[in-house]
Design a protein around this nucleic acid. Structure first.
Lengths: 344, 344
DNA sequence: CTGAAAGCGCTTACAG
DNA sequence: CTGAAAGCGCTTACAG
């Protein structure tokens, strides 16, 4: 059985309160007799004492668990990297992370789970604020700080990358390298309304870039791909044909997945990237790195996103005030690789 | 503030023990007066009561937290999928998962963290048993069940996929489709000793397959790739040349990453897969799916691996006996795609 | 500088 | 069928 404060108190003959204070680095412990302090520390080590975090939370009335709630979406690679950042930050600051799948619970169950662990804060990684509006209201009521990662959260903590700037920069790159006709390729969604926020952000970036660098080009509408058919040869050959008829020579993609799909389609049809057209993806995924040719992509720092969100939430714990942090945009950078045709 | 048992007891006028029993579905609660039970349940709902798991753990002397300890390795995609399986199983059986990075802690710190939460069990996702031997000994001493996922654990819980059978089946497929000269491609490691277990398993499968289907072929040595240069064109062109000199017409790869690398190398050099040679990867990753041509790969059910491991550990919790579960091999299947040349 | 006491929210024998 | 009591391992005023 694991050693307890009581054990240490008995072994050392020092009162349990003093032991508790020393072992918790309580400010009061500063005035504990040095020989006592030493004895306590030694005994704790010898018995390999580890404080029961749950007892400490109950008695101390403040928890040290953070919850990471995520739902199935996007590439597992991205969610994994975000979570890694969150874990790192949590750990550095003495918190422990529990991980929950949004899909596994009803709203009420999730809330109960969260409260059951008396979580100090919650990091949500979901596609849409609507998915968490119910739970968010409850958390607000209980004054439990929460935030969204890779999704903005007006009035609260929401950390995203500056996707619009990334896509704008992609357009700039095409312009700088003398491309005549850029087009934006995105996955279709059922309706404009159901498009994820990041899709909107990125498309907006394209429009901004076009206004700036291609003011004469009136057609900035995205070309939409059926996400189900992105790796269907016949379908993609048709798409490619359309693109070439439009005399497109530079393609900016909403994410790396359509970029890879277009790259493959070009290979199938005997075209070559970047000779036929340049290709720029978004995300900095493995996919873009292992394609041939290697795909130029807008790199997002997912780990950093996770860290910033977790840290912002931890900063807020225990503070009454609302200010200090609102939403945050992390800069992105373009990793230029072979799929961009360079010209001067 | 969250409602407590005391609150419900006060509101209903029923003793706190009865309330506790009813709300915990204790067998004793079966004999509680129906109207009392109803009143308790209603009040709990009205106050949106959620039991404080930490208090319950302390008082009840059995924890409900499971730890998933993983270290950086392989594709994030794989770890993520394994973790998803673990979470699903944990959740189904009423456990909560905390996630820890092996790298973030010294052995002593990790142990203290685990004990601090009085974990009921631990799932390790690491490359080598050596990495956890110290901590494993401590867990054994405390009778805390643990297991490894995607790594065998002689004498304990260890769930892996049947990689050898998968590779053997790949060789069978090549044979069935009239390939003359198969070769096995793997990433080099510093030494044979430092090779991860799964590498050994897969290589063994290749040798088995060759003995069975190509008994006349004496050369079954793997061709080793420098993992750092797998996407370096010049290097890979050299590798390809070597392969073609050997008259290779079927390549089985240790994982999807070298498979994609070879696929790209072929494209660079103007060869075509599967005309020049067939290519079979391992892992069933996104990478294999989004390549052109789509790569045939041995599919592993990572979610299932995570689930089985977690369930085996949960089964063991609270039981003294050691039997019931040792190691387990999950079958794999081959997903035949375009990179395999078919002949009859 | 240190100790005795109360309390956090729960569960588990035990007595009626 | 139900209640009074003790206890889990800790922390936090409070009194000396």
């Amino acid at each position: 059985m694991a050693a307890t404060l009581k054990d240490i108190s008995r072994e050392t003959g020092i009162n349990i309160c003093t032991v508790s204070q020393v072992l918790s680095n309580h400010p009061k412990a500063l005035s504990v007799r040095p020989e006592h302090r030493k004895k306590i520390l030694e005994t704790a080590k010898r018995l390999s004492y580890s404080k029961n975090q749950m007892a400490a939370s109950i008695a101390g009335k403040h928890g040290t668990v953070l919850a990471f709630v995520h739902s199935d979406m996007g590439l597992v690679e991205y969610s994994g990297r975000i979570q890694n950042g969150v874990i790192e930050a949590a750990n550095e600051r003495g918190y422990t992370l529990i991980v929950l799948h949004l899909e596994d619970f009803s709203n009420a169950e999730l809330y109960r789970k969260l409260m059951g662990w008396r979580v100090a804060g919650v990091i949500f990684h979901v596609a849409d604020l609507k998915l968490i509006s119910g739970i968010a209201k409850s958390l607000d009521r209980e004054k439990i700080p929460y935030g969204t990662v890779n999704l903005s959260n007006p009035g609260g903590i929401g950390v995203t990358t500056d996707d619009a700037a990334g896509v704008e920069e992609a357009v700039r790159l095409l312009h700088k390298n003398k491309h005549k006709k850029p087009v934006y390729v995105a996955f279709a969604t059922r309706s404009k309304k159901s498009a994820s926020e990041y899709k909107l952000r990125r498309q907006e970036g394209f429009i901004r870039g076009m206004k700036k660098y291609y003011p004469d080009c009136e057609d900035v509408e995205p070309l939409y791909l059926d996400p189900k058919k992105a790796f269907d040869q016949k379908y993609m050959t048709g798409i490619l044909k359309k693109l070439l008829e439009m005399q497109v020579d530079g393609i900016v993609c909403e994410s790396d997945v359509p970029a890879v799909a277009l790259n493959n389609a070009a290979a199938v049809s005997g075209f070559s990237v970047p000779q036929t057209f340049s290709l720029i993806g978004f995300g900095g995924s493995m996919l873009a790195e292992t394609s041939f040719p290697k795909i130029t992509t807008v790199v997002q720092d997912f780990e950093e996103m996770g860290k910033l969100t977790a840290n912002a939430i931890i900063d807020k714990i225990g503070k009454k005030s609302e200010e200090g942090f609102s939403s945050q945009l992390i800069p992105v950078s373009i990793l230029v690789r072979d799929s961009l045709k360079k010209q001067k």
